[in-house]
Each structure stands twice: as structure tokens, then as C-alpha cells.
């Protein structure tokens, strides 16, 4: 941001010397105009395609409005919000979403860090590993969901047979993973973890690459163990990267939709908030209620974002200076 500082001091000093002022402010004004001419269209399109729908949702959420009966549309103030917030189904979906977010975040942080550390130091299959790790990122989430669904289904899958073999016959090969809430959630989380850990480990790897090697070596000379070196030197110096990865992942996980939709369709209490919004809007055609739920989800995401950013004191735009 040094350029801004230069301009302001430049402007201040030029106020005294009027001759210089004309030239400088002309140039500054021209640059500003050109800047907005170039950046403006993208900015306006971005606002139009995102903030307009959100504003429209805010408006619609104040109506009792069913698509199948548009004539009965009625302004009801905050009735939809009161109904949602007092509905146990809403809180159940919120709980499930929070559970998935927390579990996947913790597992991915540990797993992503381990993978990043191997990628950082590895010599031999270096390029192959880096390429292979990126593959899940490029797979469509729905495809990943189907792959894990079919792998764990007891009729078409292989996983039960492998577990049966590895446990010397103790595991029942006809176990139905999709018959209960917790076993279903396990597979949903596994698929989500598989798909998104690569992104996490890449962010962490970029952080690891910036750790000062000499500090780590100094700690080693001083007799610090491997674990002490990680905890006292490596993790603190890549704190920013860890925080950014956590914020990105938490906000992404909270809007989970594809995996549970494909695997359970919300059966066995595995409905997430995003799925609830979709069902209310499309299957039940309750536009007013769906909008209220959408706004609530949006508010949750804002709260999480604000909370995490404040907690970690991260400047997400830091890299883009």
C-alpha cells in the first residue's frame, strides 16, 4: 500500500506548489478514471449477479408466498423467520451442518498438514506425488459422492469385503452404512475429506515453503526434537497460511450440499442447511419460506466468517497487496 501513501503525501506537498499540483492531480485523476473504466464492468456485473439475488431474497422472505398459489401471496413481516427459528428440523439441519464442518475441518487440517510436509521434503517421486494429490481437486464433487456411495454400498461395493478380510471375518460384509445417521455421516465426511484435502494441503504447502530453514536448523543444533521443532518453529512461522486454510475450508464446508444430496438425499437425519433451502424452494415451492432460510444460512456464513477472521486476526487480502 506504499503507493497510496506516496500519492497522499504527494498531493499534500503539491497543494503548496500550485504549479506542480495541476500536473499531478490531472495525472492522478486520469489514472483513477481509467482504473474505474477497466475495473468497473467486472465490479458491476459481480454486484448484479450476486447482491441483487440476495436483496431479492431478503424481500421475498417477508412474504407468505407459495409458487403453486401465487394469488394468496401475502406480506407477513418476519413470520417466516419466526417459523424457521422455532422449527426443530431447522436446528437439526444446522447441527448436522456444523458437525460435518467441524469434523472435516479437523481431519483435513491434520491430514493436509501431513501431506504438505511429505510434499515439502520429498525427493524421489516429487512431481508424481504433487500431480496425484491434485487429482481429487479436479474431480466433480457429484462424481466423488457416487464413487464413495458405491464403494460402501453392501451390494455393489468393495469396502465391506475389504474390512471383512482385514478383520479376519469379524466385520459383517452385509453391514448397511447408509442405514443410520452416524454411519451415513461418516461416509459423507470421508468423501468430502477426500475431495477437499488437496486444496488444504496446497495452501499449507505454500506456507511451509516460506518457513525459514535456518531457524529450524538452529533449533536442531540446539537439540530440539523433531516434534519440538514443528511446534515451536515451523507451525508458528506458517500461522498465516494455517489460518487462511481454516477460514477458506470452514466457509466452504458449511455450505455442503452435493455429497449428502447424492448419498442419502437427506434420509436418516442427514439433511444439511443448504439441502433444506433447496427442498423448501424447489420441491415444496415455498418461495417465501425458502428465501427466509436462504437469508438465515447467509447470516450464519457471515457470522462464521467474521468470527474466524476476528479470532485469527487474518488479513485475507494480505497477499494481494
Amino acid at each position: 500500500m506504499s503507493t497510496v501513501a506516496e500519492t497522499t503525501t504527494g498531493e499534500r506537498s503539491s497543494a503548496r506548489r500550485s504549479e506542480k499540483k495541476a500536473g499531478l492531480s490531472d495525472r492522478t485523476r486520469g489514472e483513477r478514471r481509467l482504473g474505474w473504466k477497466l475495473a468497473g464492468p467486472a465490479f458491476i456485473v459481480m454486484l448484479l449477479v450476486t447482491f441483487y439475488p440476495i436483496a431479492y431474497a431478503l424481500y421475498l422472505s417477508l412474504f407468505n408466498y407459495r409458487l403453486t398459489d401465487p394469488a394468496a401471496r401475502k406480506f407477513v413481516w418476519f413470520q417466516n423467520y419466526i417459523t424457521s427459528l422455532s422449527d426443530p428440523l431447522f436446528w437439526k439441519a444446522t447441527g448436522i451442518t456444523a458437525f460435518i464442518t467441524i469434523v472435516t475441518l479437523i481431519v483435513e487440517l491434520i491430514f493436509g498438514m501431513a501431506i504438505a510436509m511429505v510434499m515439502n521434503k520429498i525427493v524421489l517421486p516429487r512431481k508424481t506425488l504433487r500431480t496425484v494429490v491434485l487429482i481429487p481437486y479436479s474431480i466433480i464433487t457429484v462424481v466423488s459422492a457416487f464413487s464413495w456411495l458405491y464403494a460402501f454400498k453392501f451390494d455393489t461395493g468393495f469396502f465391506n469385503h475389504w474390512l471383512h478380510f482385514l478383520s479376519f471375518g469379524a466385520f459383517d460384509p452385509t453391514y448397511n452404512w447408509f442405514g443410520g445417521t452416524w454411519s451415513s455421516l461418516t461416509i459423507i465426511c470421508l468423501s468430502e475429506i477426500w475431495k477437499t484435502t488437496p486444496f488444504m494441503s496446497l495452501l499449507l504447502l505454500a506456507g511451509l515453503a516460506q518457513v525459514d530453514r535456518s531457524m529450524e536448523e538452529a533449533a536442531e543444533v540446539d537439540g530440539a526434537s523433531w516434534w519440538q521443532r514443528q511446534v515451536k518453529v515451523v507451525f508458528p512461522s506458517m500461522k498465516a497460511a494455517i489460518m487462511v486454510a481454516v477460514v477458506f475450508r470452514a466457509l466452504d464446508a458449511f455450505r455442503i450440499y452435493d455429497n449428502p444430496f447424492i448419498m442419502t438425499g437427506g434420509a436418516n437425519n442427514t439433511n444439511t442447511l443448504s439441502m433444506l433451502v433447496g427442498q423448501t424452494t424447489v420441491s415444496q415451492a415455498e418461495i417465501g419460506m425458502g428465501s427466509a432460510l436462504a437469508v438465515l444460512l447467509f447470516v450464519f456464513v457471515l457470522i462464521i466468517a467474521a468470527g474466524l477472521v476476528r479470532l485469527f486476526k487474518v488479513d485475507l487480502t494480505g497477499g494481494n497487496k
Binding site: 440476495i54 424447489v282 436462504a294
Partner: peptide, 10 residues
């Protein structure tokens, strides 16, 4: 970071 589903309803 927008929850995309929130845009679906409107």
C-alpha cells in the same frame, strides 16, 4: 464465500 444455495431461491 456466498452460500450458493442462497441465490437459488430468488
Amino acid at each position: 464465500f456466498f452460500p450458493v444455495i442462497a441465490m437459488v431461491t430468488p
